[in-house]
Amino acid sequence: MDPLMGAGPLRFGMNPDEVASALDGAVAHVSQGLGDGMGWGRYTDWGVTAVYGEDNSLVAVAVDAMDGPLVRLGNIGLTARAPSEVRVELQKLALREGASVRVNWSGDPEVEAWGISMGAAQEQGLTPEGYVQRLDTMITDALLVGPELAKNPFGSEPVSRWHDVRDEPPHPGTWSVRAEQERQRWDWTPLESVGPLRFGMKPLEVAAALSEQPTTRHGRFPFGAPWEGLGQWILEEDRFDHVGVSAHYASGFSWPPALGAVTIHGRTGPQVEFAGIQLIGRTVSAVDTALTQHVEERDLSLVIGCGGDLGVDGLNMFVRASRAGDVLVSEARFCQEQWEDHG
């Protein structure tokens, strides 16, 4: 990495054709607005995403944790490592060179002087049979930017078109996990309810059942007919940090929000069991193994969600992964029958 200038064969200021040539003729298999000014292209074979500014010039490069190249800053390996190790080494280097290290939106280190914003993703491996499986560890990825974006990499317009995190609550960089004995115990009736929450509840009923007001709310403005412009804001999710759950609502322009799914947070949420299997706050691999054994012994089927989340066919429940520093703990999303989960 050459701070604020580029990384590997990629130099900030290149146009999409020059980037493709530098990557040996690579094709951006996934892209948006590529070649039309602000846009981005993901070069799958290289494990990198190139982000372009208004004049079609390269302003940022995102390096994947699993598939991307190994990027170094001096003697520090930035990618595909344990996040805490990279954080310590960056802080030591910054101290020696008089640079400032701050915490970015995901709780990872960000250094304006070098144009680095670190992140992390779940590590994946292979089963003995050769199938991809999720592991219990996090490994680093990185966003590398030029000088015009270094002050606020993820808050800048070109990057936000690729990955918009502006509505995400800023993370302090610590991942405390609630002890098992401190967690509530909730029952679950598949497709109907979890704990005190019944599918179909209105947002006010959800808050009353939890005796807590939402910590954050997320929604969207739908586009109507061309002459209508932006429509009324539609609530999609309430997050309740004290209880440790998120409520997801089925809603639209013509119908009010109704509870369609509930996510139990892995680090802080209540404990829920299925067939004697504790679903929350455990290593993800342990829950995956227990679910797989359960379905095999009963000739049932597993389903896999968009993010590789496992569930039992017919229950519309998915075991998800929640970051806890360098590792992950299990959480779960419980859905009504009509809910189509998209991660």
Rank of each mutant, 00 (worst) to 15 (best):
Y249C: 04
S176M: 13
L126P: 07
S21N: 14
N15E: 12
D309Y: 07
P153T: 08
G308S: 02
R161H: 13
G53I: 02
P69V: 03
E228G: 07
N56G: 10
A142Y: 06
G146V: 10
M138N: 02
K202I: 15
M66A: 11
E296V: 09
E112P: 14
E129L: 07
T44A: 05
E129G: 15
A26N: 03
L315A: 04
W175I: 06
A332V: 06
L58D: 07
G146K: 10
Q124M: 13
Q91F: 09
R185H: 06
E182P: 11
R267D: 12
H29I: 15
F274Q: 08
Y131I: 08
P158Y: 08
R102K: 13
I264C: 02
W105K: 13
F274T: 00
P128T: 12
L204I: 13
G125Y: 14
G229M: 05
Q271E: 14
F334Y: 12
A80W: 10
P170C: 14
T137L: 10
L259P: 00
A80F: 13
M38N: 07
P69H: 01
S322D: 14
P196K: 05
A225Q: 14
A65C: 10
P83V: 00
S31Y: 13
A99N: 02
N15K: 11
V63Y: 00
R42E: 01
F240Q: 01
I234C: 05
L315D: 08
F334G: 00
R72T: 11
A20V: 08
L235Y: 03
A7T: 10
G276H: 10
H342K: 14
D309V: 00
V51L: 10
P109K: 01
E54K: 08
